[in-house]
Design a binder for these strands. Structure first.
Lengths: 341, 341
DNA sequence: TTGTAGGCGTTATCAT
DNA sequence: ATGATAACGCCTACAA
């Protein structure tokens, strides 16, 4: 006989279903021995409660979902660990849900809210260009973590945690300028509505403040056929840049992966980093540190950001505060990939 | 009025719930205009069906889950894309589920089978040391993808797709030997029950066949405090190895991340790769190619492996075949990190 | 073509 | 402390 439902267990134990339910859910009103007996039978027949039925019945569930857009980004993996740890610390369950780049994260979120009776949501990465109306559809507290957005979102509707992409980007480009670089190429995604834009603006602003006239030919957009933030793309674009014989002495890549692709293209052209070209990135991935040469970059304090994300989320859930917005400073890491000229 | 259930929609449209259900699920027996009208109302009130209720009611669902142990491994991300594409191609839905390293993947799988009425499962990564009895608990077809296992699993119970870790490992170490290296250190996880062991055995066997006496001091185990397969760990272990002043001319790291950490440690010691030490890895991650120097490695044909995984899974689901086991050859990639002496 | 009603497996509210 | 029973929201015979 195949054991599938709580009724089977009840019959097997000679008790009612509610007693079995009480045993499963650690309810107080149950005789210790009956409980043990029931748990024993459950284990023997390895019965597993049906989660769909549970979720259907439950009206609330103490669970938080983290929605990630584009799982491939190594930048997220350390944040996820922190999310999980912090959420478990609050005795909540944790659901990690990947969202396809073509999917609408709000729709996915709303579905999950209904299905799992979520208490809160963390959105991680991606672009996030939604109307306030759309955002308003989400009835549970949520935090935008690491999501840069140029658009003005109603600050009372949602919380956010991020670094100031503009400022940090400015900082690193300004550093390149102070090293004496005047011809600084930038590798940036095409028409990115989010962090890409913000970092690009930081670049433009830093050049201007250093009295450098920006040259259009030094703005290089990532190729559409490939993942925008990949080493492969950085390699391809840099290769073209080098072949164009456009003059430049430094490259600022919008993220570390692109920077590494750029370095490789430079090596393959028989040139050196930083002797021939300085290269800087952004994010502070592990690989930026382990690369040869190590890459000058802005490290985002991922651990603290993840912690802050969860803290804010729970503050809002528990109505201690309304929406909060927290900006972190990046850590400027000078690597071996840049030098003064 | 908050629209939450199918009944609300039915009332709003002045029809019965079954008509609404038919509209949602593209049933044939429905008047085209009523359907459009209903869909219109649904959109306006942005009603979302409750998935738990659906899953509860459904007896089957045409969905496949991919369970992945340790999301952080960049090795998996390209496989996941292929899984998703191939599964969608078959008109099935795709669920990606992360399994904590402490969790039992079979238990998680069984839960999902009940909750989502899965048709099949792919297990990705991890160790997988389960008794045949435990495996037998899983009542749906499943494939072990990229999961090396030294233990003898009942081959009729489950399918598998992988490279021959022993053979490929042998190949690359043999290559090092043929380059003239006699003192080859290995960086390997401690007491790993799976791929680590297999690759280690390949190393030992290659040494033996080349008449090299293995030196215990050249077997270096990854540190327990850190993620076994990380650059950080490779760095730390290699640093110790270098400081021990043990003589060696080459390092074989059980995976590329470790190899890269090893390279960095060598650079930091003021030495060069491959002039002072040759370094080889395993897996064929993108970064092995983009690293400087590029890392000699065995590339696993991830794309084809993922495709084969899905093909086998569907064959078994459709009862075209019973369990299948497929082994792929790795692609030997000679990088700049190794040289003859 | 459409509506009504029963049941999917659970939990919670009542009685007992 | 325990058991019967009514929801939870949906799908699907079956009836109309």
């Amino acid at each position: 006989m195949e054991i599938t439902t709580i009724k089977d267990i009840a019959k097997l134990c000679g008790v009612g279903v509610s007693t079995v339910s009480r045993a499963i859910n650690n309810h107080p009103d149950i005789n210790k021995e009956t409980k043990e007996m029931i748990m024993q039978v459950i284990k023997e027949h390895n019965y597993i409660p049906n989660n769909s039925a549970r979720n259907l019945k439950r009206s609330n569930s103490d669970t938080i979902a983290v929605l990630i857009k584009g799982i491939s980004n190594p930048f997220f993996s350390s944040m996820i660990k922190t999310f999980e740890r912090e959420i478990k610390k609050k005795k909540y369950s944790f659901i990690l849900q990947r969202v396809d780049s073509k999917e609408d994260e709000i729709d996915v979120a709303n579905q999950l809210v209904k299905e799992k009776k979520l208490k809160g949501i963390v959105f991680l990465g991606g672009y996030f260009s939604h109307s306030d109306e759309k955002l308003g559809q989400l009835k549970v507290p949520f935090v935008l973590s690491t999501i840069g957005t140029t658009q003005k979102i109603d600050k009372t509707i949602c919380s956010s945690v991020s670094v100031d992409d503009f400022k940090e980007s400015y900082k690193i480009v300004d550093y390149l300028c102070k090293l004496g670089h005047k011809k600084i190429a930038i590798l940036t995604p095409l028409k990115d509505e989010s962090i890409g834009d913000l970092r690009f603006n930081g670049y433009m602003s830093a050049l201007q403040d250093n009295g450098i006239v920006n040259e259009k030919n030094l703005i290089r957009y990532m190729k559409d056929e490939m993942d925008s933030y990949s080493m492969e793309n950085g390699y391809a674009v840099t290769k073209e840049l080098l072949q164009s014989e456009e003059e430049f002495t430094a490259i600022y890549a919008i993220c570390d992966s692109i920077a590494i692709g750029a370095c490789k293209a430079i090596f393959d052209a028989g040139k050196k980093v930083p002797e021939d070209y300085s290269v800087a990135g952004f994010d502070g991935l592990d690989i930026a540190h382990y690369y040869n040469p190590s890459v000058t970059t802005i490290r985002q304090p991922v651990e603290e950001m993840a912690e802050a994300t969860i803290k804010i989320l729970f503050d809002v859930i528990r109505k201690k505060t309304s929406a909060q917005h927290k900006t972190f400073s990046g850590e400027f890491i000078i690597g071996q990939s840049t030098k003064s000229i």
